[in-house]
Deep mutational scan, measured.
Amino acid sequence: KYSDMIVAAIQAEKNRAGSSRQSIQKYIKSHYKVGENADSQIKLSIKRLVTTGVLKQTKGVGASGSFRLA
């Protein structure tokens, strides 16, 4: 599940300011076997996790910027 992968990526990075979408994508692609549409799936999952309150956006708008666990 992409949401689990995103949470794992943010936990692994341990950046106080949060993790960027690009760094999350890079982590997921190197640690998991994902399909061609992974980028758009990650983007959608990040937006969903922010609206449900699992992630907090520290910089930027939408799916860009930095995110950390709430």
Score class of each variant (00 low, 15 high):
1 K>F: 09
1 K>E: 09
2 Y>D: 02
2 Y>N: 00
3 S>D: 15
4 D>F: 14
5 M>S: 00
5 M>R: 02
6 I>H: 02
6 I>M: 00
7 V>H: 03
7 V>W: 03
8 A>P: 00
9 A>Q: 01
9 A>D: 02
9 A>G: 00
10 I>N: 01
10 I>V: 12
10 I>W: 00
10 I>F: 00
10 I>K: 02
12 A>L: 03
12 A>S: 08
12 A>Q: 05
13 E>F: 09
14 K>M: 08
14 K>Y: 08
15 N>E: 05
15 N>C: 13
15 N>W: 05
17 A>L: 11
17 A>W: 14
18 G>Y: 04
18 G>A: 04
18 G>L: 04
18 G>M: 06
18 G>D: 04
19 S>Y: 02
19 S>H: 04
20 S>D: 06
21 R>G: 09
21 R>P: 08
23 S>H: 06
23 S>F: 12
24 I>W: 02
25 Q>C: 15
25 Q>K: 07
26 K>R: 12
26 K>N: 12
26 K>W: 15
26 K>T: 09
26 K>I: 09
26 K>S: 10
26 K>C: 09
27 Y>Q: 00
27 Y>R: 01
29 K>W: 05
29 K>H: 08
31 H>D: 02
31 H>G: 01
31 H>V: 06
32 Y>N: 02
34 V>C: 06
35 G>K: 05
35 G>N: 06
36 E>G: 11
36 E>W: 09
36 E>T: 10
36 E>K: 15
37 N>Y: 06
37 N>P: 02
37 N>W: 07
38 A>R: 02
38 A>D: 04
38 A>N: 03
38 A>S: 06
39 D>E: 09
39 D>H: 06
39 D>N: 09
39 D>V: 08
41 Q>A: 11
41 Q>Y: 12
42 I>N: 01
43 K>V: 13
43 K>Q: 12
44 L>T: 08
44 L>F: 07
44 L>G: 06
45 S>Q: 13
45 S>H: 14
47 K>N: 09
47 K>E: 13
47 K>G: 06
47 K>D: 12
48 R>G: 05
51 T>S: 11
51 T>K: 14
52 T>N: 10
52 T>V: 09
54 V>E: 03
54 V>T: 04
55 L>T: 05
55 L>D: 01
55 L>R: 02
56 K>R: 11
57 Q>N: 06
57 Q>C: 12
58 T>W: 06
59 K>M: 09
59 K>L: 08
60 G>V: 06
60 G>I: 08
60 G>T: 08
60 G>M: 06
62 G>F: 07
62 G>R: 06
62 G>H: 07
63 A>K: 12
63 A>D: 11
63 A>G: 14
63 A>Y: 08
63 A>T: 11
64 S>T: 13
65 G>T: 14
67 F>T: 02
67 F>E: 03
67 F>S: 02
68 R>Y: 14
68 R>M: 14
68 R>L: 12
69 L>M: 08
70 A>W: 06
70 A>P: 04
